[in-house]
Design a protein around this nucleic acid. Sequence first.
DNA 1: TCAAGTAAACTCACTAGGTAGTATACATGG
DNA 2: CCATGTATACTACCTAGTGAGTTTACTTGA
Lengths: 194, 194
Amino acid sequence: MAKPSSLETRDRILTAANKLFYGEGIRAVSVDAIAEKAGLTKRTLYYHFKSKDDLIEAYLISRDQPNLAAFAQWFDEAEGPVSAKTQVIFQRVAENARHPKWKGCGFLRTVAELANMPGHPAVAVGARHKKKFELWLAEAYAKAGIQQAQDLARAVTLLMDGAFSAMLTHRDPQYAEDAGAAAYRLVELACASS
Amino acid sequence: MAKPSSLETRDRILTAANKLFYGEGIRAVSVDAIAEKAGLTKRTLYYHFKSKDDLIEAYLISRDQPNLAAFAQWFDEAEGPVSAKTQVIFQRVAENARHPKWKGCGFLRTVAELANMPGHPAVAVGARHKKKFELWLAEAYAKAGIQQAQDLARAVTLLMDGAFSAMLTHRDPQYAEDAGAAAYRLVELACASS
DNA sequence: TCAAGTAAACTCACTAGGTAGTATACATGG
DNA sequence: CCATGTATACTACCTAGTGAGTTTACTTGA
């Protein structure tokens, strides 16, 4: 069967790809650089991934569940009404954005960089990730008895993507705080009419 | 002085850079490709621009005023209260996004692609452009007698950036329509408390 | 028990083409 | 004549991807 190191090697490549793709961008990072960071040769990398595009897709897939889980945990841990719980998500995102290595939302940045390849599998992964986030929010709002849960989830998701973009543009976490305040108002408004 | 064709040549290069950088992305486009599209040699391009980075910056600078002017025109032409005028901007953006060549906001995409170079002059141009948009909105809201004009302009700008990101991700103009509806609600809310 | 076989996992050296940027020379209008 | 503008041809290096061969771990037959 497979060597015991096989899965471990694939993970090492993915970890290196994560750091480099997120830190430097997709097209700015060469396959050679990833192989070197992973401590193996390019030929070995191509044994585990059939192309650079394949590796880009795998990079985003590896971030999908962890990111969604973090949002859900922040929301669940927060006290108070859904409006406040929503706002907490934005506050946590703002906190994360203070780390020096923070470089925006990896999904949005990858989609933006691959805008000239709409059919790229990684773009589809990014779109699905954002859809999942919105759907999860909509379900949370529906459980809280909000009538227009879908519309509200859509608006909050738009504010979140706007916050990611603005924080990256201006390098200022305040934008996520302000987006959170706007989201709070919209949730309160929806609650009032429910 | 310069040959009469000099300014024209610079413009030809800038036009080619515009189409290629916006259509394909920054790092995906080579200086050779821009020179070829402009119908001249790379050496001539380097006579007018000192580096690729310089050309990237010039590309964004050339889009700054036209974009802001379009937003202002859409807003001024629209009928009704500021809430409706705000919503119209989003509707116009959604219309534009239906063009096959639409590839998102050139400023946001450039900033996202150059996220690993925070000091890049083009990133600064992108940040200034977004600040100008927000400031223009804040002034329009203040003129309309809204108390929290700045907060409101910030929220609407966040929704706009979110709309750009989501439309690019999902290739669906509906996201701008929904962002416009949310913006409408926030403006109405601010008007009510003024 | 242990040598031979096998397939997975891996490396070295390479191809063919693209990259930003430049040294040098030629043209052309004032 | 001479400054501005343009082109040819080049450097030095990086790019994704591959052909061919080697090492490793495990299986299997005697």
